[in-house]
Amino acid sequence: MPRDDRSTDDRRWLRTVARLDVPRELRRTFVPRPAYDADAFGRLSERIARFLGTGQFLVYMTATILFWVGWNIFAPASVRFDEYPFIFLTLALSLQASYAAPLILLAQNRQEARDRVQYERDREVDARSRADMEFLAREMASLRTSIGEVATRDFIRSELRSLLADLDLRSREDDRV
């Protein structure tokens, strides 16, 4: 068995050079890069987007805004934190909207990708179903032509009757002779 004197990094590099569909490994650094799971963030964004589309969220948001406005109108002046134009409330709502919109778009993109995969699966199932139906239609057509060539009960009876009639005719002729 030949001995490979190359280092581990060289062997890894040689394995990945031949493959163009595998990205090359970046240079090593002293500080490891944080792992980022895009799928986990996508799942979280879908959960948030699903919650934002419920009546429960609307009730919570309405109750929060009513409490905010009520507190800042009817509470003593020393404990109010957002006076009448409610600028802080406007800021909070616009911040919530600025985060909600991209999360909803991300959830929609993920749903679109799932729908595309499901559409491809449906097309494959449809193609298989069509092929099966065409096969069964050809088989039924061949059975119909085969049945057309098979002797039926009525055909056999008519042939037997004609043979009996011929035999009766011959036996009468033999009796005459």
Rank of each mutant, 00 (worst) to 15 (best):
V59Y: 02
Q108C: 09
T64H: 11
T62S: 13
L91K: 14
T64F: 12
V117E: 15
S129M: 12
M61S: 07
D126G: 15
I104C: 08
N72K: 04
R114C: 05
L93F: 00
V125G: 06
I87K: 10
R114N: 06
R116S: 08
Q108G: 11
F88M: 11
F57K: 00
F74R: 10
L106K: 06
A131M: 02
F74W: 13
P102L: 04
D115Y: 01
Y119W: 00
T54N: 04
A75S: 14
A92Y: 07
V79G: 11
V125K: 08
A97C: 08
P85E: 04
Q56D: 14
A113W: 04
L66P: 07
R128V: 02
V59T: 07
Y84I: 10
D126Q: 11
D122N: 11
D132A: 15
N72L: 03
L91C: 10
M61L: 12
E83M: 13
Q96T: 08
Q108V: 08
S129C: 13
F67G: 10
T90K: 15
Q118A: 08
R116T: 07
G70M: 13
W71A: 09
W68M: 02
I73H: 12
W68I: 01
P85F: 05
F86P: 06
W71R: 12
S129E: 13
N72F: 08
T54H: 07
T64E: 05
Y119K: 00
Q96D: 10
A77E: 10
V59W: 00
P85M: 02
P85Q: 10
L93H: 05
V79P: 15
L106M: 07
V69I: 12
W68N: 02
L66R: 15
T62N: 13
R110H: 04
F57W: 13
N72Q: 01
R114Q: 08
F57G: 01
A127G: 02
L105N: 02
N109T: 09
S129V: 12
L58W: 02
A77S: 11
D122I: 00
R130A: 02
A113V: 01
I104Q: 10
A75C: 13
Y119D: 14
N109P: 00
Y99T: 06
Y84E: 14
A97S: 06
